[in-house]
Deep mutational scan, measured.
Amino acid sequence: NLYFQGLKYMVPGARVTRGLDWKWRDQDGSPQGEGTVTGELHNGWIDVTWDAGGSNSYRMGAEGKFDLKLAP
């Protein structure tokens, strides 16, 4: 699974964008943008601060869902 392989790169400072299971509307800005991981992966959740200004926790394994992917 590509998403599980990418988890080791989901570290503080990593750049991310919305992924396969995104369901959080425009939390990442409008139009959709990139963000920066600000915390360690914990119980399948990870913290992100978006360039647009907001921050929140997103699923990276929790509930079998992956809200994020590494930015290109």
Rank of each mutant, 00 (worst) to 15 (best):
Q27R: 05
G29E: 06
L68S: 01
N43F: 10
N56D: 08
G61F: 02
A14T: 11
D26A: 08
S55F: 12
S30C: 15
D21F: 05
R15Q: 01
V37P: 00
N43L: 10
G39L: 04
R59T: 01
G64N: 11
Q32K: 11
V11N: 07
E40H: 13
Q27E: 13
T38P: 00
L7D: 07
R18Q: 06
G29R: 04
L70Q: 07
F4L: 12
V48A: 01
K65L: 04
G54P: 06
K8H: 11
L70P: 09
T36I: 09
R18I: 07
D26I: 06
V16L: 00
T36A: 04
L2A: 15
D28C: 06
D51L: 05
G6P: 09
Y3V: 14
S55A: 10
N43G: 10
E63D: 11
S57H: 10
H42N: 12
Q5M: 10
E63N: 11
D28F: 04
W22S: 04
A71H: 07
M10S: 03
G13L: 04
Y9C: 15
R25N: 14
R18D: 00
T36N: 04
V16E: 01
K65N: 04
T36Y: 06
Q32N: 14
G35Y: 02
V16W: 03
Q5L: 11
R59C: 02
K23A: 10
P72S: 14
D67L: 02
S30H: 12
T49D: 09
Q5E: 15
V37T: 04
R59Q: 02
V37L: 07
R18E: 01
G53Y: 04
R25M: 15
G6L: 15
P72N: 14
G33M: 08
Y58A: 02
T49I: 12
T36R: 07
G64T: 04
D26P: 04
W24A: 06
D21K: 03
S57N: 09
R25Q: 14
D51G: 01
G44M: 03
P12Q: 09
D21C: 07
L70A: 08
G54F: 10
F66K: 03
S55L: 09
R25Y: 12
T17L: 13
K65H: 06
V16T: 00
A62T: 04
D21T: 04
G53E: 02
H42D: 10
D67A: 02
A71D: 05
L20W: 12
N56Q: 08
P72E: 13
M60A: 06
A71P: 04
V37F: 02
R15A: 01
F66V: 06
R18F: 08
L41M: 10
V11K: 12
D21L: 03
P12M: 13
V37E: 00
P31F: 08
S30I: 14
K65M: 09
E40L: 13
S30M: 12
G39M: 06
D51S: 03
W45F: 05
M10Y: 13
L2D: 15
W50K: 00
A14L: 07
S30W: 11
L20F: 12
G13C: 10
F66P: 01
V11A: 09
G61Y: 03
M10W: 13
N1Y: 09
G33Q: 08
K8V: 11
R18V: 06
W24Q: 04
D51P: 01
K69N: 11
V48T: 01
N56R: 08
A52C: 14
T49S: 10
D26G: 07
G54D: 08
P12S: 09
G19M: 06
D51Q: 04
G19N: 08
D21S: 06
N56S: 10
G54Q: 11
G44E: 01
K8M: 12
I46T: 02
L2T: 14
S57E: 07
Y9S: 09
G54L: 10
G39S: 14
L68W: 01
V16R: 00
G19A: 07
V48D: 00
V37N: 01
F4A: 13
Y58W: 02
Q32R: 12
G35H: 00
N1T: 12
M10E: 04
L70E: 04
Q32D: 10
G13E: 03
K65I: 04
K69D: 10
A62M: 05
D21E: 04
D26E: 11
G53P: 00
G53T: 02
Y58L: 02
R18P: 07
A52K: 09
D47M: 14
L41H: 07
L70W: 09
P72Y: 13
G39V: 05
L41P: 08
E34A: 13
S30D: 14
T38M: 11
Q27I: 05
F4K: 11
K23M: 12
Q27T: 06
F66E: 02
W22L: 05
R25C: 15
R15N: 01
D67V: 03
M60P: 00
E34Y: 14
L7C: 15
A62P: 01
K23P: 08
G44A: 02
N1F: 10
A71M: 10
D28A: 05
W45G: 00
P31W: 07
L41Y: 10
A62N: 07
Q32H: 13
N43A: 10
K69Y: 13
P31S: 08
G35K: 00
L41A: 08
K69E: 12
N43H: 12
W45S: 00
G29P: 05
Y58N: 01
R59Y: 02
E34H: 13
P72R: 13
Q5G: 10
Y58E: 01
A71S: 12
G54I: 11
L7W: 11
S57I: 10
K69R: 12
G39W: 04
K69H: 09
W24G: 07
T49K: 12
K8W: 10
M60G: 01
M60Q: 02
W24C: 07
N43W: 09
R15M: 03
R59D: 01
T38Q: 08
G64I: 05
G44N: 02
T17F: 06
Q27K: 05
A71N: 07
R25E: 14
Y58S: 01
L7I: 12
K8E: 15
N43S: 09
D51V: 04
D21N: 09
I46H: 02
S57W: 10
P72T: 13
Q32S: 14
